[in-house]
């Protein structure tokens, strides 16, 4: 199986869609002549032309709204949001329009729209450019949210997103574009709502997604040297959310931490923690823990930013605090 990086996997998914379906087109800021802020669409303008690779004015609400309108008319637009932070300027079109049209029209309208949004911290981009809003969108009925962590999932989930007749927020962590992994040449998809066990272990469950999958795996390796085997679960999509896989794991390990990069207060980790409490209370040896980013605006300084984001050390500390008093 060939190894490629995540950026390449997403490129493959986009190219495949552009080539197989003439309803697909791309919209976004600097996706064409500039070649994409994160180079995902490099060369696309030349290859597919400016009708299908549409450089847009800097107008996020207009972009998302226009894409939604085109989807209402049966097209399959794929929007690139340069960063998920900019989606705050277009959130009304997602929440009040794209997410609602199927329900409010009683199924007369479908919105097959994919919004690829670059999420996450760690890039030293400070407070306005380092946030994780995928959890917010996951709480909106009518929207689906995918959070790939590796090239295989990036391509497999993108295929599912493009084929889905609903608005999908496809959150790409900026620090994972260069991550390498095996991707088969044969066609495959990764369905929504199916979490995957990244590492098996009998002693504690770490439920997580996105970049925190790797932080959790790092913690698991350290724990292993101390004789504690952690099971790491990658959720892959937040809506639909596969709590069953987490609950099944907790029935075995009896301990669980939810690890998420986002701020702690009101974080999506609380939703997962609550589901585990409800479904696996009798299997728990202690409280469901959460390791989230601290409730601070992302600082610019590297040392400060790193201190604001969950680390393997913090995961281990929290595990010790909750389960080994």
């Amino acid at each position: 199986m060939p190894e490629i990086i995540t950026r390449e996997a997403i490129r493959l998914g986009l190219q495949e869609a552009l080539e197989s379906d003439d309803r697909v087109f791309l919209m976004g800021e600097d996706i064409g002549a500039y070649q994409g802020s994160y180079a995902v669409t490099k060369g696309f303008l030349e290859q597919y032309g400016d009708e299908r690779v549409r450089d847009c004015p800097i107008a996020e609400s207009g972009i998302i709204g226009a894409a939604t309108g085109a989807a209402m008319a049966g097209m399959r637009p794929i929007v690139e949001m340069m960063t998920i932070n900019f989606m705050l300027l277009g959130i009304d079109q997602v929440v009040n329009h794209a997410a609602k049209l199927s329900y409010m029209s009683n199924g007369q309208i479908q919105v097959p729209l994919v919004i690829r949004a670059v999420t996450g911290g760690g890039g030293r981009l400070a407070a306005t450019h380092s946030q994780n809003f995928e959890g917010w969108f996951a709480s909106v009925p009518g929207v689906k949210v995918a959070v790939p962590s590796d090239p295989y999932d990036a391509l497999g989930l993108l295929r599912t997103a493009i084929a889905d007749p609903n608005p999908v927020i496809f959150a790409e962590h900026s620090m994972l574009y260069g991550r390498r992994g095996e991707v088969p040449e044969e066609p495959y998809v990764v369905p929504f709502g199916e979490a995957i066990v990244r590492r098996e272990g009998a002693d504690v469950t770490l439920a997580t997604y996105g970049r925190m999958v790797y932080t959790s795996l790092e913690a698991a390796e350290t724990l292993s040297t101390r004789g504690i085997e952690a099971e790491v679960i990658d959720l892959r999509t937040l809506n639909p959310l596969d709590t069953d896989t987490v609950v099944q794991s907790v029935r075995k390990t009896n301990r669980v931490l939810v690890v998420e990069e986002n701020w702690r207060t009101g974080a999506f980790s609380a939703e997962i923690a609550s589901a585990v409490h409800e479904e696996a209370f009798d299997d728990l040896d202690g409280p469901v823990g959460r390791v989230n980013g601290f409730d601070v605006p992302a600082p610019y300084n590297a040392k400060l930013e790193d201190a604001s984001i969950p680390t393997a050390e913090r995961i281990i500390e929290e595990l010790e605090r909750l389960y080994n008093p």
Binding site: T68, A70, M72, A73, M75, Q93, N96, H97
Partner: peptide, 19 residues
Amino acid sequence: GGHAIVAGQLPLAVGLALA
């Protein structure tokens, strides 16, 4: 439609026209 957020239908109109 019938869109109840003031001006929300204008970008949608742009998209219908784009299609």
